[in-house]
Design a protein around this nucleic acid. Structure first.
Length: 203
DNA sequence: AATACCCGCAACCGCGCATGT
DNA sequence: AACATGCGCGGTTGCGGGTAT
């Protein structure tokens, strides 16, 4: 039982966006705001599917995007957040104003991954790789006693882990993210006491 | 100069979840 | 309760530019 396609693929453009398409999309959103993505292409006179429009706007056209190189500070923050959240790029992006999940995901896969590996750190577990050079960046976050490791290898148990870690040494800005939708998602995901818990245990 | 290879990024795809009917 | 619809997320792909041979 597959889902119905999000749009009529036969009549939509694919691939790189043209300047004209960008301008149409920007003009439409400026005039009408971010509304229903499914109906937006038709309303804006674009031969694109709604998902494509949304992605283009969020990842490239949004006026509040920072773009440009990541700073050392951002690097560190991404690594720390990744050690806590795993591949939850949207949650990580919510802590980095002006950055998108896609951008961070790409940056992680192309730069940070390699950087960690070169420092002898497994980018997935944030632990020193076998025989690798230990690094003091993030491995402390998940240093656990051998007997504790067995049951909590899966990524879903991170919230339990952080309770046990005495000092995460995270210089995070512990405040609700600027994007309210993200707050809603996290509250939905972790419960309303999520931020209070974070404040307490990350002190 | 030509070709092969590598890398980074934009875009696509498929799935899960939330919401509406 | 069951199904349909739309949105958002994470993984993956493919193109274009840069570098090495």
């Amino acid at each position: 039982m597959g889902r119905s396609p999000c749009c009529e693929k036969a009549h939509t453009n694919k691939g790189a966006w043209t300047k004209e398409e960008d301008e149409r999309l920007i003009a439409h959103i400026k005039a009408h705001g971010e509304g229903c993505w499914r109906s937006l292409p038709k309303a804006a006179g674009l031969l694109r599917c709604g998902k494509s429009c949304r992605l283009r706007w969020i990842n490239y056209l949004r006026p509040d995007l920072k773009r440009g190189n990541f700073t050392e500070e951002e690097d560190g923050l991404i690594i720390k957040l990744h050690s806590l959240l795993g591949n939850k790029w949207s949650l990580i992006a919510a802590r980095l104003p002006g950055r998108t999940d896609n951008e961070i995901k790409n940056y992680w896969n192309t730069h940070i991954r390699r950087k960690l590996l070169s420092h002898g750190v497994d980018p997935n577990t944030h632990r020193p790789t076998a025989g690798g050079v230990s690094c003091n960046m993030t491995t402390i976050s998940f240093e656990k006693k051998e007997e504790e490791k067995s049951s909590s290898e899966d990524s879903t148990s991170w919230s339990n882990q952080q309770y046990r870690v005495p000092d995460l040494n995270l210089d995070l800005r512990i405040s609700p993210p600027s994007q309210t939708e993200s707050v809603k998602r996290e509250v939905a995901l972790f419960g309303s006491g999520f931020w209070d818990m974070r404040r307490t245990c990350l002190k």
